[in-house]
Amino acid sequence: MKIKDSDILIVPGAGNPSPFHWLTRWQDNMSTARRVDQDDWNRPQRETWVNRLVDAVGESEKPVILVAHALGVLTVAHAAPALTGKIAGAFLVGASDWERPELKATYGDHSFDPVPRQPLGFAGLLLASSNDPTCNITKAEAWARDWGIHFGNAGEAGHFEPESGHGPWPEGLMAFARFTQTL
């Protein structure tokens, strides 16, 4: 599938990425990309975030490719049962493990726990890092298996953010292009 033939929905995690983050850069450079905005990026609530994603998919006129990072990955997993039919695929990067007490404590929200374990119902790729401080790579691989999607080990890539050297992230863009060609 060509990017121009799809609606690219950018699904960020908590905090909303800066202009230097690869998600923002990709959004700015893909003509069919738009961000799924949330009312409060610093106080995520599962029901609100999931509903916002479902609404954005419903407004799309073309097949949808989701591009999610961190808590955005879990938002996709929670929303998946309501997304069947319009999703061509999901490119998921650096899932955050909100089953870990320290992440729940940071944002004061427990509604993303437990992480869904049923198949997403659409094609996907979950990229994880062997040294991501927010999610153990073994757990990320188990989620990909449970979700029925492909898994990619990106090596020591941190949390795929500017602080770990992922501003423009050309390697990620090449992986995304390869992924879209499989759809």
Rank of each mutant, 00 (worst) to 15 (best):
D40P: 05
P116W: 00
G167Y: 07
L125S: 02
E161F: 06
H69L: 06
F91V: 00
V67G: 00
H159Y: 14
A77M: 07
K62T: 05
G72Q: 00
A105Q: 10
G58L: 13
S18D: 15
A157S: 14
W41I: 08
W143E: 03
I149C: 13
R117Y: 08
F112G: 01
E156A: 09
R35I: 13
P114A: 07
A154W: 03
D5I: 02
E99T: 11
N16S: 07
V73K: 02
R52W: 06
A90I: 01
G124V: 10
R35P: 05
I65G: 00
C135F: 12
K2D: 15
E59W: 03
G85V: 12
A142V: 14
G155R: 06
W143N: 03
R117N: 10
A79Q: 04
C135T: 12
W169F: 15
L126E: 04
Q38D: 06
C135D: 13
A175S: 09
P12N: 05
K86F: 09
P12G: 05
E163T: 13
T32V: 07
V57T: 11
G89P: 02
G72P: 03
M30V: 13
W147Y: 10
R117Q: 10
G124M: 06
P116F: 04
G148V: 05
T75A: 07
P44L: 03
F176E: 01
F20N: 15
M30C: 06
S18L: 05
H150L: 10
P162G: 02
Q118N: 08
D132K: 09
F112T: 04
L23S: 02
P101T: 04
V11G: 01
R117G: 13
P116G: 06
L173C: 10
E102N: 11
G58Y: 06
W98I: 07
A70D: 12
S130L: 13
R117C: 10
G172W: 00
G165I: 09
L103K: 02
A105M: 11
L183W: 07
D7E: 15
W49D: 00
H150M: 11
K139G: 07
R34M: 07
F176G: 01
E171N: 14
T138G: 15
G172M: 01
I3E: 08
I65V: 15
W98D: 00
P162E: 02
T75S: 09
A33I: 04
M30L: 15
G89A: 12
Q118A: 14
A154G: 04
E61Q: 13
W41E: 14
P12L: 08
W49F: 08
V50T: 11
A154R: 01
S164W: 14
F160M: 03
P133G: 11
E47R: 11
R46M: 14
L66Q: 01
D55E: 15
G72E: 03
D5R: 09
E61S: 13
V115K: 01
P12W: 07
L183F: 04
Q45S: 10
D37M: 08
L66D: 00
V67E: 02
T180H: 05
E171Y: 06
E141I: 09
K104R: 15
Y107P: 02
K139S: 14
E61H: 12
K4E: 15
S60Y: 08
L53C: 10
